[in-house]
Design a protein around this nucleic acid. Structure first.
Lengths: 231, 231
DNA sequence: ACCGTACCGTACCGTTCGGTACGGTTTTTA
DNA sequence: TAAAAACCGTACCGAACGGTACGGTACGGT
């Protein structure tokens, strides 16, 4: 028996000639997935019914079940699709100077804020959070693995580069990343997830990112450097 | 017409003699609410159906609807009830020394971690997050107002006391609180909400709280003090 | 011209849920 | 003690959802 996660990316297995994208879905399937994502953003988890999706995307429910297996498979497909869209700007050019390192951190902070507070990400996170049932992994694991983990990897590489260059000092990379994440996000994400729009609307992404990175550099400054005051 | 939020606390309006607690619910109603909370923790949002609750709590569905109006009213009642349970240890004795201030911050950090990562809080937050529908405030607003806001108030008073005592320095109390929250929680909360149990299980509450508070004190140390190295 | 495949639109089925109604029983009140 | 209110257990209803089945259509291959 295939689980929903296993089924992801196995659509169009009948031998058609459609080309699959990176995530393994045909063009038509991606169209449907994007309509599903739109429904999800507009009306939340409850609005994304198979009937509503078939109507909005001009496809048949039978096709939905052939492509995605069941509703959970559809949800997993949406998460996978969106995770492949959020291209991680893998700064192949690792920072060579302290200024480049700070700039790379600020860029990461701005990207993280922009993505996490976007309507799309919020709707997706709400869906995955709601799908967690006790011990079952569910769709939330897919989002964790294909979304957050990859973002964390990017930051970890950046932090290691900063450590190698002597710009920051830390022992536990996991703890350092958690601190960086906390300084950038704070309680913004959970407030936004709970529907508090005021917290998000009155926020300067650039300014907040700069402040958070300055705080991080202060905390993880090498022993020799004096305390850096945030600009 | 009453909204779900308006109805909260108006149970037992028929003239019974039952005594209402702080949140406005009778003893019997609190029994039912706690059973509902247990169902929610065990099986998630989907498991908390009116029929299941009536069966588990040995009450009739008719009583449920008389007490709470509709399902949303029941959910709001659960949130209100739990928020009133999490008594904020209002440290009436504000810190008089730097050590007391640090200890109070550490206690706050431990309380915050313990509460936010508890099964009950996670289930409640999952429910409220899932209940957010676009522009409608929903139950999430109740949790924000009666839960998070009050915790934030406690921390804000603590921070102001620290500022008055000269232990910390900041301009924007909101920003300072967000930093403190971020240092304490990091990405632990969202990971736990998404079902990642590994991130939570391998965590020493006390140690992490101490570290986060040390970082906060480093960042917000008054200008005169030298950089404090975390113990 | 014929076939296989993929697909659409619609209808349909079994289940479940929120919400209501009713008879019988317990508890409160006078 | 008797009326009245609250309550329980069960049954019931309409609606909506996940999932399936079927007839009809477009299209590329042979």
């Amino acid at each position: 028996m295939l689980t929903a996660a296993d089924r992801v990316g196995q659509g169009d297995a009948g031998g058609g000639n459609a080309v699959a994208d990176d995530a393994g879905f045909s063009a038509r399937q991606n169209e449907v997935i994007e309509v599903a994502l739109r429904l999800l953003v507009e009306g939340g988890d409850k609005a994304l019914t198979t009937s509503a999706l078939a109507r909005a995307a001009n496809c048949s429910k039978e096709s939905l079940y052939k492509w995605f297996g069941d509703r959970d498979g559809l949800l997993a497909a949406i998460v996978t699709h969106q995770a492949s869209r959020v291209r991680i700007i893998d700064t192949a050019a690792l920072p060579k100077t302290r200024e480049q390192f700070g700039a790379a951190l600020r860029l990461f902070a701005e990207d993280l804020l922009t993505v996490l507070l976007s309507d799309t990400s919020l709707a997706l996170n709400r869906m995955c959070v709601a799908a967690v049932r006790g011990e079952a992994p569910g769709v939330g694991a897919v989002l964790l693995e294909r979304g957050k983990r990859r973002i964390e990897e990017r930051a970890r590489r950046l932090l290691e580069a900063g450590k190698a260059g002597g710009y920051v000092r830390f022992e536990d990379a996991r703890a350092a990343y958690r601190t960086l994440y906390g300084l950038i996000i704070g309680d913004l994400h959970i407030n936004a997830l709970l529907g508090d729009q005021a917290a998000v609307s009155s926020l300067s992404i650039g300014g907040h990112a700069r402040e958070a990175v300055a705080q991080f550099l202060t905390l993880y400054a090498p022993a020799g450097a004096g305390p850096k005051i945030q600009s």
